[in-house]
Structure formats: structure tokens, C-alpha cells
Write a protein that binds this DNA or RNA. Sequence first.
DNA 1: AAAATTAAATTGCATTTTGCAAGTTAAAAT
DNA 2: ATTTTAACTTGCAAAATGCAATTTAATTTT
Lengths: 138, 138
Amino acid sequence: MSVQNKRSEYGCPVAFGLDVFGDKWSMIVIRDLMFRGFTTFKEFLGAGDGIATNILSNRLKHLEIQGIVKKKRDPENARSYIYSLTEKGRDLVPVMIEIVSWSGKYDDRPNARRGLVEKIRNNRENVEKKVRAGAIDF
Amino acid sequence: MSVQNKRSEYGCPVAFGLDVFGDKWSMIVIRDLMFRGFTTFKEFLGAGDGIATNILSNRLKHLEIQGIVKKKRDPENARSYIYSLTEKGRDLVPVMIEIVSWSGKYDDRPNARRGLVEKIRNNRENVEKKVRAGAIDF
DNA sequence: AAAATTAAATTGCATTTTGCAAGTTAAAAT
DNA sequence: ATTTTAACTTGCAAAATGCAATTTAATTTT
């Protein structure tokens, strides 16, 4: 599967993490599950990032194999599935928060989400708690 | 340049960060600068990760353009260059630490660097301080 | 001072991954 | 029975990567 690269022999924890979630589309999917409350294939597609269906499918499968994402049928709509983060996936909240925090310092684009970013930076523990509780409102 | 993808219209801070440093080889280079004290092209090449010269060249250039890495001539060897992290690059320490921390929880490979990872997790502030002081001993 | 070595790339080319459009499968609504 | 919807899969062109060979510029060595 494409995301997976040759593993380093040396057990480096950075390389380990990168093999699991360290590519752009995987991170975008995790972000959408974590902060946007997305649950369906369709939602990911429609998020405006321009991910292709085959790549999305590939990444969801990869993340599922890696234990970051779980997939179940939607009990209310049998032609739909519900994707969600596992505990292992939610444990990536601190990584995401630090990325957001870094961007908050350096993102000078006119459309940067300054207010949101400041809230997250100044309230890391609460953000994490909210994500873990499934109470997403970012 | 290859690392750079279509930017999202929506100013998402996660996407912003990913465009700057969010690909495998960029992260590996940052790791080597941050935790291993690498400074030369040759050192990156010899690190055993199997990065190709063209890709390394591309990523160093990209990171330099992004202001993460700076490059100067080696005063003691005019055919060599010295690469180092900028302040902007060192500000990625928390991101790296959280990745390491996450991996520490989930990396079950026999060669995982458990001791090192635990030290880093339990001592985040000090790790950051050390990196900023250039006193790398990981 | 010519030849060899070293460091940091660049180039050419085969392989792999991505992006895009179209097609498929299975369930549900009309 | 036909159409619509959700989640894919497939085929193919374009882009990125990996690999080996070559280049450039500085430095030693002969």
C-alpha cells in the first residue's frame, strides 16, 4: 500500500509515527475526524481539499489497518459506513494541537483561522478533553 | 516543487503546516537536524534512511525556502555547506516530541528506542531547551 | 601544475504514486 | 422496475520518487 515506505532498521520513533500517519492525506483525514466530526466517505470528499476517491479509499484502509480509524455500518442507513477515530487515533490530538499551534505562529495568510488557533493554543487540555468526549465544536 | 500541493482555500492551520513540513522526507531531515546534530548533505545521506540525493536536495531547498532550514558555507571547508534549523524550524520541537511520545505508546517493534522515548516524554521542556541551546545528546 | 579526491548537487530514466473521469456494486427510494 | 445514493474500483495520463551516472567546484596529492 502506497503510504507505507521502507522501514528504517533503527527503530526511530519519528520514522515509526510517520509510517503510520505521516502523509498529507492521512493527516487531513485524521483532522477531519478529530476536529470536524466527519464520519462518512462522502463528507471527506466534500470537504474541499480535493482528495480523489481512490486516494481517500486507500488512506482510510491504511488508517484502519494501522488501528487509527475504525469503520462500522451505519445502523440508520445500510448503504453508508461510519468512520471514526480509535483511542490510538485520538491519542494523536497532541500532535495535531502542536501543528496547529506552530501554524498559528507562522501562518500569515489573510484567511488564516487566527481566532480558532489561539483558542486551541491557549486551551490544549480542554481541546483534548473535548475531542475525547466527541464534543467537537471547532 | 514536488512537496508543495494545492493549497486549501480555507486557511486551515493543519493544512498550512503540512504544506511546509508535512512529508516524510522533510520530517526526517528536520529530525536529523533537531536530534542528531547533522549539518552536512553527506551526513543526511549516510543516515541509513535511504534518501536519494535528488530528493534530499529537493527537500533541503524546500525547507530553506520555507524558512525552516538555513544554509551557509562551512568556514573550515569551502567545499562543504552547513545546514541548520532556524528559529522557525526549532519551533517544531513540540510537534516532534508529540510524535515521539505517541510512538512511545504504540511502537512494539523489538528495536524500538524505549528508553530514549521515555526520557523525552517525561522531560519535554528540557528536551526543547536542549535543542534550542544546540546541546543535542539523544 | 596536472591528476585525483571530496562535497554537493543535477540529470536521465525506469518505477511508483497520484489525480482525474468513468464505471461498478449494493442498498433504498420512487 | 427504474432511479438514486454511498462507497468504492478501474484505467490511464501526469507527477513524484528511486537509482545510477555525471557534473561542478574546491582541495589534496603526486
